[in-house]
Structure formats: structure tokens, C-alpha cells
Simulated assay, not measured.
Amino acid sequence: MSLTAQVKQEIVGVSPGSNQARAAQVSSILRFAGALQMISHRYIIEAELDSEQLALRLGREIGALYGIRARLGRASAAKPGQMSYFVRVLEQGDTLARQTGLMDSRGRIVRGIPNKLALGRADILAAIWRGAFMASGTLSDPGRSASLEVACPNRETAMALVGAGGRLGIEAKAREVRGVNRVIVRDVDAINAMLAAIGAKQVLAEWEQQRQRKETRATANRLVNFDDANLRRSAQAAVTACARVERAFEILGDDVPEHLRYAGELRLKYREASLDELGQRADPPMTKDAVAGRVRRLLSLADRQAGEQGIPGTAEGVAEHEELD
């Protein structure tokens, strides 16, 4: 089951609390999943939902809060294998529309969320978001592109939902994506706060565990890649140094000071060792700076003599090695 389905399954059973919060949740579901239309000179309200449990809950709440009977049924599936359900109010549609804020007292369609709800208490604001998510929300898997989104019927509703989130202390942004108005929460802490606010506590715990596992795995991968890169650089540096030392011995022949020859031979004998390891293998032991200094002086001496003789220096050894590779 997807995270989105898990959230909807969990919060459909959450009690909004007061009758005002219950009414706000019903109004929100109808706003985000419903349509108000006039058929045969009477207003009809219909909400299409992807959960039978939510459809039953909405039908019961409409009856309990407003005393209006709603018809429930199965709608034609938008996609093969996808179930869809409707809640339809055929009688007293205009009355329910006014009571839920879909229509004002003058019979005009309201495009956003009624101010008395959008400016309400925290439980009412949470109920608005809960209803919106149940109607048209999605939660993606944790990661760099993680988001909690709600598709909105128009820009006014999107802006009102952003405002409701802000009054809950949760930052959300309105965006139009491919012609659809959406409200998006991207910040990890904000997503956590919103899941907690709408009552999806079990999903929140699972989502947070998944996020932490992914972050741990990503950190481990970065460290492995970092270590691999360091090892490759160290190995390449050792190969280059060995090639230059071999060329230095060719240039200098027998004219190599003994302490520089010893350092060069140590480098060639333990080709994959680090400078620190070379120093430990020396007899007597040396610091890595001492080993590096002697190898540098060996190469410098060889390059100076090569310049005097007009022959290629120690860098020639590096070029030849790369060609062989």
C-alpha cells in the first residue's frame, strides 16, 4: 500500500473533535472532491472519492450534522483496477451548499474556503487540511524530492489552504503544475508537522524511519565514494612517484647519494604503501615527511642533471608509464 493510501486510511478514522471542526472537515472534503451543479433547476452536490470508507464517513457526517440524506454508490473507474466512489446529494443541495460554504447567502458560488473556517481555531484548520488530504492529497516517499501535496480546484482555494497551513505554523506553497493548482509542503520538518496535525501519527513514524534509513544509506554511500576517490588518488600518486624514481635511477646511474637511493628503493619495493607506511618500514624508521623529502631531492637531483645533459627528466617516466597503461 502506498504512503498516500496509508495516510488516508489512518486519518479517515480520526475524530475532528467539536461539531465546528467536523463541519469544517465535511466542507473541505466537498470543496476538494466535490462539484456543485444545477440539473433540472435544482442544485446537486456530488463528491467523488477513492475510498469506500471515506464515502461512508462523509455520508454519515452529512446526515448527522445537517439532517440531509446523501446517496452513496460506486463511480466509473478512471483507470483500470482503480475503485472510485461517489457521495451525491439530490435533495436540498442548495441548503447543504450554503451550510458548508460552497455557496453564499445570495446564492453565489464560493470559489475559496469560507473565511469563518480559514480563520478558525487550530482544530478547525487541522480539519480543513485533513479533509483536503483525504479528498485529493498525496504523500511521496522520503528523499530529496519528498513532498506532501494537495490538488486544488482553483487558485483561490489553494491560497486559502496555504493560509490555513501558515496559521498552523506550517509553511506550504501554492503552485500551478500542468494546469492544476497545487499546494505543496516540501520541508521535512513541515511534512512531519502536517502529518501530526491531521492525525497520521502511525504513518509519520514510518515515514520518519524510512527517511532516516535513506539518509544513513546516502551518507554511507558518500563516504564510500569519498574513500574510493582518496584511494584512487593515493594509488595514482604512488604509481607516478615510482615511475619518476625509476627514471631518476636511469639518469643518475651510480651517482646517487646513498640516503637518497635508500628512499627511492624503499618507494619501489613497496609500491602501494603510503608515505607513512614507507617510513615505518625504513630501518631505522623515518617520518613520512622525511621519506617524502628524500624522494623529492632524488627527483630534483635527477632533473637537474638531465637538464645539463639535454635529456628528458623524470617526468618522462610518468609519460611512458601512462602509455603502457
Rank of each mutant, 00 (worst) to 15 (best):
29 I>R: 07
8 K>D: 03
7 V>G: 03
29 I>M: 13
17 G>F: 02
24 A>N: 11
54 L>H: 04
5 A>T: 10
34 G>T: 03
58 L>Q: 03
26 V>A: 10
15 S>M: 06
68 I>A: 14
49 L>S: 02
9 Q>V: 04
19 N>A: 13
19 N>T: 13
12 V>S: 03
44 I>Y: 07
9 Q>G: 12
18 S>W: 01
42 R>T: 11
26 V>P: 12
57 R>D: 13
31 R>W: 00
65 L>A: 11
57 R>E: 14
15 S>L: 09
10 E>F: 00
66 Y>K: 08
57 R>K: 14
12 V>D: 01
52 E>D: 05
61 E>T: 13
71 R>H: 15
32 F>M: 12
64 A>N: 07
51 S>L: 03
7 V>H: 01
33 A>Q: 02
62 I>P: 03
46 E>V: 08
47 A>H: 05
10 E>S: 01
7 V>R: 00
11 I>A: 00
13 G>K: 03
24 A>W: 09
14 V>M: 02
51 S>K: 00
31 R>K: 11
23 A>P: 11
24 A>R: 11
7 V>N: 01
17 G>M: 03
2 S>Y: 00
69 R>P: 07
51 S>E: 03
32 F>E: 06
29 I>C: 11
29 I>K: 06
11 I>L: 00
59 G>Q: 14
4 T>G: 02
66 Y>R: 09
59 G>K: 14
12 V>W: 00
56 L>M: 14
21 A>L: 12
44 I>C: 08
36 L>W: 05
19 N>K: 15
24 A>F: 08
68 I>Q: 14
23 A>E: 12
34 G>A: 04
54 L>K: 03
55 A>M: 11
44 I>A: 04
15 S>D: 14
15 S>C: 08
46 E>H: 06
21 A>D: 07
66 Y>G: 09
3 L>P: 00
68 I>G: 13
37 Q>D: 12
42 R>G: 06
43 Y>S: 15
42 R>P: 05
11 I>W: 00
23 A>I: 10
39 I>H: 09
5 A>H: 06
12 V>L: 05
11 I>F: 00
46 E>Q: 13
33 A>V: 04
9 Q>S: 12
59 G>H: 14
33 A>I: 04
55 A>Y: 04
1 M>G: 07
42 R>M: 09
9 Q>W: 04
38 M>A: 12
13 G>A: 07
57 R>A: 15
56 L>N: 15
